[in-house]
Design a protein around this nucleic acid. Structure first.
Length: 472
RNA sequence: GCUCCUAUCGUCUAGAGGCCUAGGACGGAGCCCUCUCAAGGCUUAAACCCGGGUUCGAAUCCCGGUAGGAGCGCCA
């Protein structure tokens, strides 16, 4: 049987990193087995669902490259189907109407909690042989409840957590349709997973306790339950739960921080999953090797340092052309027009060794494209003085005389210049850096000057000399 | 309160009873290399939650603690 998995977020907030990992696991598991993966928007809560959140989900998924094999599915478009199934269950006696008001239910819960009991529906409207139901109150729109078995156990063979046994006696009759007829989550999920032929339900482990109920509904519907894999959640660096007000970030914020999508995926897949000692995976390797045997059941903390490291490794080894679109995006973001300087691939090649993120790369490469907006104060104080200004003035002349503007020619030129004066290369290179880049950090000096170009280099050397003179 | 889950270096993890003097990676420390920053190379510190069993032998199996977490909605 071919594998079909799904990622089913509710559009009530942004797509956070835990959701992205769940989506990734679902995607990899299906794709690695020649199966299908689909995206389903669980928007039955009309109050809290927003279009902005839906957009954020699509945007995040697109950026990460986790493409659904089907058109997007919205639960709100499937109401007729849900109504049909509810009617069937009512007719079959596996569901029934309950006329309790919300107030009544609240009171029931409060009393149970006061008695230190687990809050649960007491079954007062549940039809039983020989039982007399209360009189139907006037003007109350009943909810529909699932008639959960009271005997026996539900055994869940979770792919990650192993066997989990639930006693049916612990479960109560959950509401599957509200008073206004709108079906509820646990019910919609079951119908959808059944209709869409989902073979593996991969989701956050906050759903473990819902699973026995869902299995019972599935069985009542005569369907075979899928396999389940409950993924533990991702914690913040301090071990606390990630939430909006505590460090949780939307997927697109990781883009803004300078991550490459593939690198983020690589970090995420290793968070909780392992394949021996391997740390770095291409997308194809992830697909081929991902499996639930090696997914940890314990929650994992998000370690930004390691995420940066993975990003750096990726930046260093991937074809620079792959980085270009993201790098372009980051440059424009800080007001740099990439058309005004050297080819991005060439810059990426020179910078990637020293940049963990694309934010860093953009910042450190800005000077290739935009005019200098002053010198770094510390660096200028250290490297730009009367002595080095004289050096720079002489060097400008020497470089202007070079027959060609290539990295090897510049290398020879600068080295020869230093040697002729009995100076170490550092004595010369550092002032040049500050003069042309505005700071004492840049790629090797020959590469820096080559990429900067002849005109800009000479102009900046002269400007630095003028700068020193103006200060004295 | 009840139900369920989890527990190896600071962090992510390897580990399926002897291969464990517990391995790798990030991060840390030190050294080397070096035109800056990096990168790279080498070295190093650092962990099996506690207590009982089972066994010739336990990080690995069982039980009990402890500590974290999730769930108990006409939310998803």
């Amino acid at each position: 049987m071919s594998v079909v998995t799904r990622f089913a977020p509710s559009p009530t907030g942004f797509l956070h990193i835990g959701g992205a990992r769940t989506a990734l696991f679902s995607y990899l598991y299906a794709k690695g087995r020649g199966g299908k993966y689909l995206l389903r928007i669980e928007d039955t809560d009309r109050e809290r669902s927003t279009q902005a959140a839906v957009d954020a989900i699509f945007e995040g998924m697109a950026w990460l490259g986790l493409k659904s094999d089907f058109a997007e599915i919205y639960q709100t478009q499937r109401f007729p189907r849900y109504a049909e199934v509810i009617a069937q269950m009512l007719a079959a006696g596996t569901a029934y109407h309950c006329y309790c008001s919300k107030e009544e239910l609240d009171q029931m819960r409060a009393e149970q909690q006061a008695r230190k009991e687990r809050p649960r529906y007491d079954g007062r409207w549940r039809p039983e042989a020989g039982k007399t139901l209360p009189p139907v109150p006037a003007g109350v729109q009943p909810v529909v409840r699932f008639r959960n078995p009271t005997e026996g156990k539900v055994v869940l063979n979770d792919l990650i957590k192993g066997e989990i046994v639930f006693d049916n006696g612990e479960l109560d009759d959950l509401i599957i349709a509200r008073g206004d007829g709108v079906p509820t989550y646990n019910f919609c999920v079951v119908v959808d997973d059944m209709d869409m032929g989902i073979t593996h339900v991969i989701r956050g482990d906050d759903h473990v306790n819902n699973t026995p109920r869902q299995i019972n509904i599935l069985k009542a519907l005569g369907a075979t339950p899928p396999a389940y894999a409950h993924v533990s959640m991702i914690l913040g660096a301090d071990g606390a739960k990630l939430s909006k007000r505590h460090g949780a970030l939307g997927v697109m914020e990781y883009r803004a921080m300078g991550f490459m999508p593939e690198a983020l995926l690589n970090y995420l897949v290793r968070l909780g999953w392992s394949h021996g000692d391997q740390e770095l995976f291409t997308r194809e390797e992830m697909m081929a090797k991902f499996d639930f045997d090696h997914v940890s059941a314990a929650p994992a903390r998000f370690d930004m340092e390691k995420a940066y490291w993975v990003n750096h490794q990726y930046l260093k080894t991937v074809d620079p052309a792959v980085v270009v679109p993201e790098f372009d995006w980051h440059l424009r973001r800080i007001g740099v027009d990439p058309a005004t300087g050297p080819a991005l691939t060439a810059v990426i090649e020179q910078q990637r060794e020293r940049c963990r993120t694309l934010v860093e790369m953009a910042e450190k490469s800005k000077f290739f494209y935009a005019e200098l907006d002053g010198y770094n104060e510390k660096d200028a104080a250290k490297h730009l003085n009367a002595e080095s200004a004289a050096l720079l003035a002489a060097l400008a002349e020497a470089l202007a005389a070079l027959p060609e503007w290539t990295a090897p020619a510049l290398h020879a030129g600068v080295n020869g210049f230093a040697e002729a004066r009995g100076l170490g290369l550092g004595k010369v290179a550092q002032p040049i850096r500050v003069a042309v880049a505005g700071m004492a950090v840049s790629p090797p000096i020959d590469q820096t000057l080559f990429l900067l170009g002849r005109d800009r280099t000479l102009a900046r050397l002269k400007a630095a000399v003028a700068h020193v003179q103006s200060k004295s």
